[in-house]
């Protein structure tokens, strides 16, 4: 039974935002909501502006227009215009698509950095890092290696693990499937699903791997270049020919 937008309680509401870099408009009139417990995916062709929307939500670029509201369970925060580190403190964890690790720090240091600036309790930080190494065995194995020397897939896992260190409320994932072998991809997506269920962390997922994304997510938004095209529950969209058109380019 797909969840409809009306009967859910949104934790993130993006309301008609516009993202621009100087004169270049990357995306306009973008609205989306993420309900409690949901994984939502944002799809679209190259250059549609998906990364830009994600960056705007994470506070890496300030939206030129519109508002973003985030409900952390106690209060509703206005996010638009606030810098990224403030949003990180509110519990929004962003895993970008590129340059996702700190290359000159070890794997363990990378994990530690994920919570060092967000958690005041050092002991809790250490515990969290240890439990994540249990969850991602490959990271435990490479503990003392420089992160820059990890393979692409290992870096991706490290980045996801780092985002989880400080127990975020909402995860923003930009193309987490890049560079993952099919087997690893299955494992990572399975893990994301588990994290979503067990820890109750909502996710906004930008993906090029449409099939996998639709499997993982509850609902999907599809962008065309610079704007939102349509949206709906993943089960419906998997059969929707508009999605095929958007990707095959008609």
């Amino acid at each position: 039974m797909p969840i409809s937008v009306s009967d859910m309680q949104p934790i993130l509401t993006v309301d008609r935002i516009e993202v621009r870099y100087g004169k270049v408009v990357a995306a306009t009139d973008i609205s989306l909501v993420i309900g409690k417990g949901e994984i939502v995916t944002l799809l679209g062709p190259n250059g549609a502006g998906k990364t830009s929307v994600l960056k705007a939500i994470a506070g890496l670029v300030a939206p030129a227009d519109g508002r973003i509201a985030f409900d952390d369970g106690k209060t509703v925060h206005e996010l638009a215009g606030k810098p990224g580190h403030v949003l990180a403190k509110l519990g929004i964890a962003h895993v970008p698509a590129q340059n996702i690790v700190l290359p000159r720090m070890t794997v363990e240091e990378n994990l530690e950095v994920g919570g060092r600036f967000l958690m005041s309790d050092r002991a809790a930080l250490q515990r969290s890092v240890r439990s994540l190494m249990d969850r991602f065995p490959i990271l435990a194995e490479r503990r003392t290696q420089y992160a820059g020397l990890l393979s692409g897939g290992e870096q991706r896992q490290l980045a996801i693990a780092r985002a989880l260190v400080a127990k975020p409320r909402l995860m923003l994932l930009d193309e987490p499937s890049i560079g993952l072998a099919p087997k690893t991809l299955g494992e990572i997506f399975g893990l994301l699903k588990r994290i979503n269920r067990e820890d109750g962390i909502e996710m906004l997922l930008v993906e090029q791997n449409v099939v996998k994304a639709l499997e993982l997510a509850n609902r999907a938004y599809v962008m065309r270049v610079g704007a939102m095209d349509f949206s709906g529950p993943c089960e419906d969209l998997a059969r929707d020919e508009r999605l095929a058109n958007a990707y095959l380019g008609s």
Partner: peptide, 12 residues
Amino acid sequence: QNPDLAQCVGVN
């Protein structure tokens, strides 16, 4: 090492 990532982990 990476100013964007720094923001994401909560560095001002």
